[in-house]
Amino acid sequence: MKGVLLVNLGSPDSPTARDVKPYLDEFLMDERVIDAPKWLRTLLVRGIILQTRPKKSAKAYKKIWWEEGSPLIIISERFKEKVKKEVSIPVALGMRYGSGSIEQGLQELQDKGVSQVLLVPLYPHYAMSSYETVVVKAMEVQASKFPEINLTTLPAFYSNPDYIKVLSDSIAEGLQGFDYDHVLFSYHGIPERHIRKSDPTRYHCKIDGQCCKTNSVAHHTCYRHQCYDTTEKVKKALNLEEDKVSTSFQSRLAGDPWLKPYTDYEFERLAKEGKTRLAVITPAFVSDCLETLEEIAMEGEEEFMEAGGTAYKHISCLNDRDDWVGLMAKWIDQWSQKESLPELTVR
């Protein structure tokens, strides 16, 4: 029997430092998130970061926490339940970090008699610290705990035409009634070295402004190229004016060069250049979470308005939109009815 495991990032069990600390420990000790040698990663995470970050992060989580619980978890559960109603095979949900693990999701499917699993990392773009770590963790768990289960992974879908249509429609709805003069596509940031590490050619990704525009096999695992490609395809789909659209990257750790331009710098730059009515989209996430609800919707607005902005709107992620649910169900049906996956990536 076939089944599906949807996997999202995960969340602390509560917005308290006590629960945030073990969550951050698991997240930051992942070698694909902080890719330093284990001894150095341990020193940085457990000796420095976890001494202060849990309290700060807990305050941020409290600002966005819903009565039912973590927004990311609640949204992911709602999405799973809607998808289940649209397909004829079992669907389970797992989280890369925190409660509701990948192992629990696979166990749920095995208990239902599933032997072939479609693994769906809920990330449109390929990155070491998101898509790749989900796949690697799932393969490790499958090999050690569920050797009788066969895993197939849904490819990154950042440029799939059906996905672009759903994303574009959601953005168009979000822009209705908002007289914007600029639209900022803010993607989650990663260190520049992750781009180079993910380059199978070991020479193409120079992050020089040209490599992302030059066709290469490296684009299949280049997060930067994929983010810019998503922006370009949505811009074309919505017929957005060239000078009213830009791309930036949010969330970074000090000490290393991360992908630029930085979103917080863009808030200041755009406002000073007279772009005072800003709409912000966060397409690296399919579910609203701390990085979208607190960092962009709350902190971002404050930063932009302080820099001279006059109007600001954060457009929600796809979350559990019916057209997004329908598209995921379509992909699942294509896989469950055939031996191969649907063609999801475009160059």
Rank of each mutant, 00 (worst) to 15 (best):
L5D: 01
L6N: 01
L9C: 02
P12K: 04
S14D: 12
R18A: 13
D19V: 00
Y23S: 00
L24K: 05
L28V: 02
L40Q: 10
R46D: 08
I48F: 15
K56P: 00
S57P: 00
E67Y: 05
F79E: 10
K85V: 01
E86F: 02
V91Y: 08
G98I: 02
L106I: 02
S115E: 13
M128C: 12
V135A: 03
E140K: 14
A143K: 15
S144K: 15
N150G: 02
L154H: 05
Y158M: 04
N160G: 09
Y163V: 06
L167H: 09
A172Y: 07
Q176E: 15
H182I: 05
H182N: 08
R193Y: 13
K197N: 14
I207V: 15
C212Q: 09
H220E: 12
C222W: 03
Y228A: 05
Y228Q: 13
A237Y: 03
E241Q: 15
K244D: 03
V245C: 11
F249L: 10
Q250C: 03
S251D: 08
P257R: 14
L259A: 09
L270N: 02
K272P: 01
L278A: 10
F285R: 12
L290C: 07
G308S: 10
H314Q: 06
V325W: 03
V325C: 14
V325A: 05
M328I: 12
M328G: 00
T345L: 05
T345A: 14
